[in-house]
Amino acid sequence: MPTPLILYKIFKAGRVSEAPPEADLSLRTRVQTLHADILKVFGQAVAIRHIDAGSCNGCELEIHALNGPHYNLDGRDVKFVASPRHADLLLVTGPLSRNMETALKRAYDATPEPKWVVAMGDCGCSGGLFGESYATRGKVSSVIPVDDEVPGCPPTPIALLQGILAAVSPAGGNTTDPDAPGRANE
């Protein structure tokens, strides 16, 4: 009977979730005026579609790490979804390989308004090591509008979460509004 072992392990490991970081508004590259109205209704709950546009998988490792128990994404009402049609926010990694350019534009068009785009990693922010070449378009903002750029190779999960939260924060900041529905679980 498997139950006692697994329950013992869960009990013994305890809760490792940490308090979330504040949004880092310096990562913002533009502010959409819709923010205030949307956030009043939906809080900071956000559905993310991740798009790998030629990444080396370094950023993906940290996206995976962000899903781990230390970061308590569900507690922040942040979740990853399987289609851009279900998403509020596109999280784009990689130096934007030309093979992915059309797919990225289509995914952006398929994402319902209002929407945000976060470019992750040095490659997504500037083209990084690869820059612009016969194979790559460089930074994500050369093809679709970008709201936040989170640099790093790869950015740590904390930095990534700060960037995601900055995208879905009201124009002036204020990520700690206790009345926002997204904070209800804390």
Partner: peptide
């Protein structure tokens, strides 16, 4: 989740000792 927890502990120690979670550079 348990494996994720262990991996995160290891990555954080690597970051503290070597300056990068995945030992880049």
């Amino acid at each position: 989740m348990q494996f994720w927890r262990l991996k995160e502990d290891w990555l954080r120690l690597a970051a503290r000792l070597f300056g990068h979670r995945y030992l880049f550079d």
